[in-house]
Design a protein around this nucleic acid. Structure first.
Length: 750
RNA sequence: UGGGGUAUCGCCAAGCGGUAAGGCAGUAGCUUUUGGUGCUACCAUUCGGGGGUUCGAAUCCCUCUACCCCAUCCA
């Protein structure tokens, strides 16, 4: 788990501490209309993770309010995904459809409160009446229906007396709300459709905005965590729960940024499109970011979980680099998986001076993986190596086999190239080589130095396998659609060769094919007769990177710093201008005068303080910088502190009774308690310490405690002055006069 | 254009007035019979821009800019 906690956990902790909830209850509430992807994994990780961190629990709930898109195969996929990731949802999976009758009752209640009405506008009319982001909407004439009529109509909607679209139930909120979502949102629509679970019992179905908050409430959820696009829906969430006057505790919604990964798409719509158009083999295509896809590809749940942990949770929209995910799977598999030898693109090598046959004992794990196990590696005159591991004209820095450079066969002997055989087209088709009998791995006395050891297989014993190599599905970082598909995302090698132990002994399902990557025995297509391996991820390849980078090196790096154009500032009204002039005449800075003049609340508050204390500049500063913050959230009349008190506070700063730092602290206290500043200062003993003889000993102590930083400071890191000042202030509870401290510290450190 | 959000290294991301965490990526070196792993070092004088308040600002105030979400009888 990460060391610093995220904003959600911070909220949860505060709520627990304040006693808002006795227990944390979260939920993972997908709509069963598609296969879950790694974005769902993030949500699962957050919801189940928070629940377990705080000894609460997390419900798995299918949000099945739309019968036309949902299906039971998706609920199975969702359950599989959660289970595979290792989370436990307890006794039962919950379904919103189980709450349909309760939700219906709540709707009745709303109608009876005259907070909901049956609207009979057409779909187009509803849209039209809603208005736009800049124009307010207008309410339907049907909103005036009587409670009785609404009750009657709604019941008949339920009974199925009307056709789809004839009526809807809407909340009566505000058709001119700035938040579009609050313009009388729909609560229920008529849908004569078969529900995969509720069957044909209902002909009306609740909308997300009505069902979700109530389902959360019914289940006793404390923290309803969803993604950012629901921010606007939070107002409805609260409206429904508050209007119904539900008993506390009730849930609150919190939003985080959904996961984006480059070179892939994450929206259900786009994923579905790929599946339906046959661009991929199915929801579990190993190139897809679905859980089923990663699973089939060979990713482990641990790697996905670790990825979710590494990327964190925040509210900033972001696009995570796939490299982060790839790191997680490599990191996990590195310590778990046996290493074997496989040749994907075979080149025949005949070792002319070797006769007979032998079996080399080779460990499955490298020296740095503390696991036991080994297998026999058959060796003979005829072997295959990777075509890439021989170069007739090697580039600089090439470590593998060349006509001049010998190479070691991993776990075996060193060989030297004697002759290169080519076909009619000039392609290399065979290498004639010699081996060095005294160079066997583990008992090498040949004294030959090689630069690398390469994988190989014995021709006779090697098994033929199919290997599927996957590349990113899309060729650009932020793909829009199928036009961005990478045409080479799948490369199938039908005749790769692998050492026999992998097939015969089956030491694992996942392997590292040495020097190539991690591979997974395909869980569906693999048979003993026709083994199939999926490439999970390649090894980090600093050589491949280097050779690739060597070609297109020149890259225009220096890009000019973007100039930012400033927008136009709204002009002041005449009255504001007059005020502004008055303020600047009192030698208030332009900036402060400007904000003061433009804000009526601030200026009137300021005038009030000024009538008590004649200190125009200090007062203006504190009003604009501190009081403004409070005035933003609270009406002037409801502020706990008064203009008089602010004046009093400023007076103490002006005559140096307290420092401005302390003034802020006192102000915070005034905001909370409305206590008199003088009294706060007295009660807490906040009077400023300016006497050097009292401060110096503290400075000496701090300096003695931080020899490293003293050295750094003396070496020229002048920023550290602030560190020492901070420490001294901390030691005195903020009471030391910072100006004096600054001087004294600077002197002491000289 | 109204409302709601968000901006800290190439990519994530801590930080909540007193020394700019960490991970990924990258670079260099050491180790290595995987050009893997491991280890070491380097990698933000600066936090979207500009002002202001303060002894001191990524953090507080003002302002501008950019991006995301909202006008489905989807969720």
């Amino acid at each position: 788990m990460s060391q610093s906690k995220d904003f959600l956990r911070t909220i949860v902790e505060e709520d627990l501490k304040s006693g808002k909830y006795k227990e944390v209850v979260t939920r993972f509430p997908p709509e069963p209309n598609g296969f879950p992807h790694i974005g769902h994994a993030k949500s699962i990780f957050i919801n189940f993770g928070i629940a377990s961190d705080y000894n609460g629990h997390c419900n798995l709930r299918m949000d099945d309010t739309n019968p036309t898109t949902e299906d039971t195969i998706y609920v199975e996929a969702l359950k599989d995904a959660v289970k595979w990731l290792g989370f436990d949802w307890g006794d039962a999976v919950y379904f919103t459809s189980d709450y349909f009758s309760k939700i219906y009752d709540y709707a009745i209640q709303l109608i009876k409160m005259d907070k909901a009405y049956v609207d009979s506008l057409t779909e187009d009319e509803i849209r039209e009446y809603r208005g736009t982001v800049t124009e307010s909407g207008k309410r339907s004439k049907f909103a005036q229906r009587s409670i009785e009529e609404n009750l009657d109509l709604f019941e008949r909607m339920k009974k199925g007396e009307f056709k789809d679209g004839e009526h809807v139930l809407r909340a009566k909120i505000d058709m001119s709300a700035a938040n579009m979502k609050m313009r009388d949102p729909l609560l229920y629509r008529i849908r004569h459709a078969h529900h995969f679970r509720a069957g044909d019992e209902w002909s009306i179905y609740p909308m997300y905005d009505f069902a979700h908050c109530l389902s959360d409430y019914i289940e006793g959820v404390s923290h309803s965590i969803c993604t950012l696009e629901f921010e606007n829906n939070r107002d409805i969430y609260n409206w429904v729960l508050d209007t119904l006057g539900l008993e506390l505790p009730r849930p609150y919604q919190h939003e985080f940024a959904r996961l984006g990964i480059n070179y892939t798409v994450m929206s259900k719509r786009k994923l579905l499109e790929l599946v339906e158009n046959g661009q991929v083999s199915g929801w579990d295509d190993p190139r897809l970011p679905t859980i089923a896809g990663y699973r089939r590809r060979g990713y482990t749940p641990e790697s996905i979980l670790n990825f979710c942990d590494q990327i964190g949770v925040a509210k900033a929209n972001s696009m995570v680099d796939v490299a982060q995910l790839e790191f997680c799977i490599r990191d996990d598999l590195n310590t778990k998986v046996p290493r074997v030898l496989a040749v994907l693109d075979p080149l025949k090598v005949t070792i002319e001076n070797y006769e007979g046959h032998e079996e080399i004992d080779a460990p499955y794990y490298p020296h740095d993986v503390p696991k036991e196990g080994s297998r026999k590696l058959p060796f003979s005159k005829n072997i295959y190596i990777e075509r890439d591991d021989f170069k007739e004209n090697p580039p600089k820095g090439y470590f593998r086999l060349t006509p001049e450079q010998p190479v070691r066969l991993r776990h075996g002997y060193i060989i030297t190239c004697k002759e290169v055989i080519k076909d009619a087209g000039g392609n290399i088709c065979e290498i004639k080589a010699e081996y060095h009998p005294d160079s066997k791995s583990g008992s090498d006395s040949s004294g030959i130095k090689v630069k690398s050891a390469i994988q190989w297989v014995s021709a006779k014993e090697a098994k033929r396998v199919e290997v599927r190599l996957y590349d990113r599905l899309f060729s650009c970082e932020a793909p829009e659609g199928i036009q961005d598909l990478n045409p080479d995302s799948l490369h199938v090698i039908k005749n790769a060769l692998i050492e026999p132990a992998v097939i015969l002994d089956k030491p694992d399902e996942r392997f590292q094919f040495e020097r190539q990557g991690y591979f997974y025995a395909d869980p569906i297509d693999y048979t003993d007769e026709k083994p199939v391996f999926n490439k999970i991820v390649g090894l980090k390849d600093s050589w491949g990177k280097k050779t690739k980078a060597d070609k297109p090196t020149p890259e225009p790096k220096a890009q000019a710093k973007k100039v930012q154009v400033d927008g136009e500032v709204v002009a002041m009204t005449e009255a504001e201008q007059a005020l502004f002039n008055k303020y600047t005449a009192r030698s208030i800075s332009i900036e402060i005068a400007n904000t003061l003049a433009r804000d009526e609340n601030l200026s009137s508050f300021y005038e009030e303080t000024l009538s008590v204390l004649n200190s125009p500049v200090s007062l203006a500063n504190i009003v604009v910088n501190e009081v403004a913050r409070e005035l933003k959230q609270t009406q002037a009349s409801e502020l706990k502190f008064s203009a008089d008190q602010i004046a009093e506070l400023v007076k103490m700063v002006d005559d140096e009774t307290i420092s401005s730092k302390i003034a802020k602290e006192v102000f915070e206290e005034m905001v909370k308690s409305g206590e008199n500043p003088k009294k706060i200062v007295e009660d807490k003993g906040l009077v400023q310490i300016s006497d050097p003889s009292k401060i110096s000993p503290i400075i000496d102590e701090i300096i003695a405690k931080n020899p490293d930083n003293v050295a750094k400071f003396k070496a020229g890191n002048t920023k550290l002055l602030g560190f020492f000042v901070g420490q001294v202030l901390k030691a005195t509870g903020g009471k030391a006069n910072p100006t004096v401290v600054n001087q004294l510290v600077a002197e002491s450190l000289k």
